[in-house]
C-alpha cells in the first residue's frame, strides 16, 4: 500500500460543551474513493469543515501529502491540493456559470499579472478555455454567461463539483453531491466521479444515498455521535451490528461495545 495522501489522526472538536467529534481517525490512500457516512448530526460535515479549515481543530492532526495542515490558514489549503463542495450549494449567486468555475482556478492564477488581465474582454483566454472544457467534460450544457442563481438545482450541484475540480485537487471532498438528484442524474454523477478518480484524484464523499456509496466507494467510515464506529468496505458495512443499530435503533441502550 502506498503512503496515505490524507491522514486524519485523533481529531476532536467541541462547540462549547457539545462534543461534535471525538478522537476520529482515518486515512485516505491516493486515488481512493472513500465514503463518510452516518446519521444526521453525526459530525460528517464538521469533518469537512475541519479539513478545509473553516473550524479550528481542538485536538489531533491533519496531514496532507506528508505536510501537517492542522493549523494552516484556510486559503493556503486549496493550493496544496485540498478542494471541496458544500452540502447546501455555495456557488456565488451573482456570478455567471463560467465566473464561478473561474473562481475555482483562483489558486493557480493569483499572480498579479494574471489578476490584472481583463479576461472578460479577451476571447481566447487560457483560463476561460480550460473552464469551458471542464464544463463540457462534465456534460453541462448551459449558457456559460447565465447567472447561477437562476439555474435548476441539479445543474448548480454539478457546477459546484466542476468548480471544486478546477484547482486540480489531489483530494476532492464532496458533501452530499447526490442529494436532490434524480436516479439518472445520480448514476451520471457516479460515472463522472469514477472517471475523475481514475486520474489519480482521491475522493472523500459524505453521502446518505447508500446505493451511490456502493456504486462508487471502495472504503467507508461510519460516524455516529461524533465517533467513528466502523471502517471497512461498503459490503461489510451492511452487516455491521453497530452500524445497523446507529441507523435503525437498538434493543439495548448501549451500542458502543461493538465499536
Amino acid at each position: 500500500m502506498s503512503d496515505p495522501i490524507l491522514q486524519i489522526s485523533n481529531v476532536s472538536k467541541s462547540f462549547g460543551g457539545l462534543k461534535v467529534l471525538e478522537d476520529v481517525s482515518f486515512n485516505l490512500t491516493p486515488g481512493q474513493r472513500f465514503g463518510l457516512i452516518g446519521p444526521n448530526g453525526a459530525g460528517k460535515t464538521t469533518v469537512f469543515n475541519l479539513l478545509s479549515g473553516v473550524y479550528a481543530v481542538d485536538r489531533g492532526s491533519v496531514v496532507l501529502a506528508g505536510k501537517d495542515i492542522t493549523n494552516l490558514p484556510i486559503r493556503e489549503r486549496i493550493g496544496l491540493g485540498l478542494s471541496r463542495s458544500f452540502q447546501n450549494i455555495r456557488l456565488m449567486p451573482h456570478l455567471s456559470v463560467i465566473e464561478n468555475v473561474l473562481m475555482g482556478q483562483h489558486c493557480q492564477s493569483s499572480q498579479i499579472t494574471e489578476m490584472l488581465k481583463p479576461i472578460n474582454w479577451m476571447k481566447n483566454n487560457k483560463w476561460k478555455q480550460r473552464a469551458m472544457e471542464t464544463l463540457e467534460n462534465a456534460g453541462l450544457k448551459v449558457d456559460p454567461g447565465s447567472t447561477v442563481g437562476e439555474l435548476p438545482y441539479g445543474v448548480r450541484k454539478k457546477i459546484e463539483v466542476v468548480r471544486a475540480l478546477m484547482s486540480k485537487p489531489s483530494v476532492l471532498m464532496l458533501d452530499e453531491p447526490a442529494a436532490g438528484l434524480n436516479a439518472r442524474e445520480t448514476s451520471e454523477l457516479a460515472d463522472f466521479l469514477h472517471e475523475i478518480s481514475t486520474r489519480n484524484v482521491t475522493l472523500l464523499l459524505v453521502e446518505h444515498d447508500m446505493n451511490f456509496i456502493h456504486a462508487l466507494c471502495e472504503r467507508v467510515a461510519v460516524l455516529n455521535f461524533g465517533s467513528k464506529i466502523f471502517e471497512g468496505t461498503p459490503k461489510e458495512v451492511n452487516r455491521d451490528k453497530a452500524v445497523l443499530e446507529a441507523y435503525l435503533g437498538t434493543s439495548t441502550l448501549e451500542a458502543s461495545d461493538a465499536a
Binding site: R77, R90, M92, H106, I119
Partner: peptide
C-alpha cells in the same frame, strides 16, 4: 473585467467560500 473584479464580486457573495478558494 479582470480577475480582481471577479474576486471582489466573489467576496461580496460569499467570503468564507472565497477564502476556501484561496482568496
Amino acid at each position: 473585467a479582470s480577475r480582481i473584479g471577479l474576486v471582489m464580486r466573489a467576496v461580496h457573495d460569499d467570503d468564507v467560500v472565497s477564502e476556501i478558494m484561496g482568496v
